[in-house]
Amino acid sequence: MRIHYDGLALPVSTKLVHQLQNLLNQNQIKSESVTLNFRDPTYSAKRGGFHPVEIRLEQHDNMWHFCYITDFAYIGSGPYAELTKELDFDFQSGVFQNLFGVFPIEQATDMYQIWEGNFLYYYLELEAFTVSISE
């Protein structure tokens, strides 16, 4: 089954789609929705590291569709640090959210391209993430 990415409000790359498609095929997903979690096992508020990322896909008309891509980060310091959404690209609602507010998703094009390039580098080149998939 393919992932739909043509005509989205943000320029999701073929490279990202192929990586996600490979993960779906390797895990033989049977449900109509899936959440992919990319985690740096050493990431913490104290030591930093690579931000956790969550990608949600749902099936419609024999095709996977992006629901959202969320990048999390610790906000605050010391014992008060909380894991919070830092960047949220919500394809279903058509909004982009960051620490400064909520905006139409189309305003996040430049931010998304930078984020995606970094994410793919961390995932493919640095092998920074462990991946878990929940259906």
Results as ranks from 00 to 15, higher is better:
residue 40 D to S: 07
residue 29 I to G: 07
residue 42 T to A: 12
residue 30 K to G: 15
residue 52 P to T: 04
residue 54 E to I: 06
residue 51 H to S: 14
residue 46 K to Q: 13
residue 49 G to I: 05
residue 38 F to A: 00
residue 42 T to P: 00
residue 52 P to N: 00
residue 57 L to M: 02
residue 28 Q to H: 13
residue 22 N to W: 02
residue 33 S to N: 12
residue 57 L to R: 06
residue 46 K to M: 05
residue 22 N to V: 01
residue 39 R to L: 14
residue 51 H to E: 15
residue 32 E to P: 01
residue 55 I to S: 02
residue 41 P to G: 07
residue 57 L to F: 09
residue 42 T to E: 04
residue 28 Q to G: 02
residue 34 V to A: 14
residue 51 H to N: 15
residue 51 H to K: 14
residue 39 R to I: 14
residue 26 Q to T: 09
residue 26 Q to E: 15
residue 57 L to E: 05
residue 45 A to D: 09
residue 45 A to F: 11
residue 50 F to V: 15
residue 58 E to F: 13
residue 44 S to I: 03
residue 51 H to M: 10
residue 47 R to H: 09
residue 42 T to L: 12
residue 34 V to K: 02
residue 34 V to Y: 12
residue 33 S to W: 08
residue 58 E to Y: 07
residue 46 K to P: 00
residue 25 N to E: 12
residue 43 Y to Q: 05
residue 38 F to N: 02
residue 49 G to T: 08
residue 47 R to V: 05
residue 54 E to L: 04
residue 24 L to Y: 10
residue 25 N to A: 08
residue 39 R to Q: 06
residue 41 P to M: 01
residue 45 A to C: 04
residue 45 A to L: 06
residue 20 L to C: 11
residue 26 Q to G: 13
residue 48 G to P: 10
residue 57 L to G: 04
residue 24 L to G: 11
residue 48 G to S: 05
residue 35 T to Y: 12
residue 32 E to F: 10
residue 36 L to F: 12
residue 51 H to F: 15
residue 22 N to G: 04
residue 44 S to C: 10
residue 36 L to P: 09
residue 53 V to L: 11
residue 39 R to W: 01
residue 24 L to I: 15
residue 37 N to A: 01
residue 20 L to Q: 07
residue 43 Y to M: 03
residue 22 N to A: 14
residue 32 E to R: 13
residue 20 L to S: 07
residue 37 N to M: 01
residue 53 V to P: 06
residue 48 G to N: 05
residue 21 Q to R: 08
residue 22 N to P: 00
residue 38 F to I: 00
residue 47 R to I: 01
residue 44 S to E: 02
residue 47 R to S: 14
residue 36 L to I: 15
residue 44 S to N: 07
residue 22 N to H: 03
residue 40 D to Y: 14
residue 54 E to D: 09
residue 21 Q to P: 01
residue 51 H to V: 02
residue 36 L to R: 00
residue 52 P to L: 02
residue 40 D to W: 13
residue 37 N to W: 03
residue 43 Y to R: 04
residue 45 A to Q: 03
residue 43 Y to G: 10
residue 43 Y to T: 01
residue 26 Q to W: 06
residue 48 G to K: 02
residue 20 L to E: 07
residue 56 R to F: 14
residue 34 V to S: 09
residue 50 F to N: 11
residue 37 N to S: 03
residue 57 L to H: 03
residue 23 L to F: 14
residue 47 R to A: 11
residue 46 K to D: 07
residue 31 S to T: 15
residue 23 L to G: 11
residue 42 T to F: 12
residue 55 I to P: 07
residue 28 Q to V: 03
residue 22 N to T: 10
residue 28 Q to A: 09
residue 35 T to K: 14
residue 20 L to F: 10
residue 44 S to Y: 11
residue 32 E to S: 15
residue 28 Q to L: 04
residue 27 N to G: 08
residue 36 L to M: 13
residue 30 K to H: 11
residue 52 P to C: 01
residue 34 V to H: 07
residue 21 Q to N: 13
residue 27 N to K: 08
residue 25 N to D: 15
residue 32 E to I: 01
residue 55 I to R: 03
residue 58 E to V: 00
residue 26 Q to I: 03
residue 49 G to Y: 06
residue 21 Q to K: 08
residue 25 N to Q: 11
residue 23 L to K: 11
residue 54 E to Y: 00
residue 50 F to L: 00
residue 37 N to L: 05
residue 26 Q to M: 12
residue 50 F to I: 02
residue 41 P to A: 01
residue 37 N to T: 09
residue 52 P to G: 04
residue 24 L to N: 11
residue 39 R to F: 05
residue 35 T to R: 14
residue 53 V to Y: 05
